[in-house]
Design a protein around this nucleic acid. Structure first.
Lengths: 201, 201
DNA sequence: GTCTATAATGCGATAGAC
DNA sequence: GTCTATCGCATTATAGAC
């Protein structure tokens, strides 16, 4: 009985441990990036040895993948509810930006890894490539739909609109990280989007 | 006399070496960032040993500073000619973007180091902080002047315009590095700027 | 000036004790 | 599960030969 209990407790504890490690890794990668962030630092924060981390995740790359998967899960979880292209998708995009703002680590992680991942051999390269592809196509489709509906501002090209939408977020997030100016990131993104469409956001 | 000549020759050759090293370092830092890029790689490209590099630049940090200084020199060199705030400055900004596009390494270097430099202890942190401050203030002043002249599009707030101008460049450059879509970076930036002002760019 | 050699440190990953 | 110990490798920087 102590055996069963111990085993059950163990399983639960293992899952908790994995989650703790993921949270710590999230922080470390957000602060130092993937290459520069070390397993040792992650281990220290979670109160384990470096080898202890590698029991739960077989390699450093595996740990990064797990962190990215977890990050994705949350955003897609929201986006799954609002999928129809058009103004709804734009509002959903704005909502995701707002959500990320409330967890600043998300912004750090994204900004650092996206830049680091430009190198083709980087473990997160394909992840970000796919991400830009997906969001870009999704956004472009929304702007096309809006053009047909007549809610796209005249003269706006859907492709440009999609690129600029992603660019403004990435760029503002970077400025936000330098803490140069205090500004409302969501409001700035909304203002930009509003300059592309005629319907109120 | 022969001494002077020899010294002169020596100096010239040393200066060339320094320049070669700077060019190689520029490439390496652009490809791998500062932390991940190694002196060894720089040395290999320039045909020297790793210790040889440190004869010309006393430390890795010193090498980065020299690379950033060289980069700055070129941009400021251009900006020095066109300084009056207003539409002229905006056109100058666009011209710098165009120049950078012709040397893609510049875009890589900037994108990677700007993200890496968000960490406060990074050797390039203050450089980028100052850079955002300077360009942001400069741009904002230009938009203020244009508002007084009546050439700023109604409803556009100078602070937002300045932030969005920098953001769109940073963001588009990142997309450009992922080679996701082939698009005209300068044209996209111009389109965005055009949405902020009434006078043709 | 440039080299080799080396010091000092840090990394990821594995082996094996407990 | 978690640890210690260790391997093998890479890094920056210095010392000293040439």
């Amino acid at each position: 009985m102590s055996d069963t209990t111990a085993t059950r407790g163990s399983y639960a504890k293992t899952a908790d441990r994995r989650r703790d490690i993921l949270d710590a890794a999230f922080e470390v990668f957000a602060e130092s990036g993937y290459t520069n962030g070390s397993l040792r630092t992650v281990a220290d924060r979670v109160g384990l040895s470096q080898a202890g981390i590698l029991f739960h995740f077989k390699s450093k790359t595996g740990l990064l993948q797990a962190v990215l998967d977890l990050r994705d899960e949350r955003s897609r979880e929201y986006f799954a509810t609002v999928t129809s292209p058009g103004i709804e998708a734009l509002r959903g995009f704005l909502e995701v930006v707002r959500m990320n703002c409330e967890e600043p680590g998300m912004i750090e992680l994204y900004a650092i890894l996206a830049a680091e991942g430009t190198a083709e051999e980087h473990p997160a390269h394909e992840y970000f490539r796919g991400r830009y592809d997906w969001i870009g196509a999704q956004a472009r489709q929304s702007f096309i739909v809006m053009r047909e509906e007549g809610t796209l501002r005249p003269g706006v090209e859907p492709g440009h609109a999609a690129r600029s939408m992603m660019a403004i977020v990435d760029g503002l997030q970077l400025q936000w990280l330098y803490g140069r100016t205090k500004f409302d990131l969501v409001a700035d993104v909304r203002t930009h989007l509003q300059s592309l469409v005629t319907v109120a956001l």
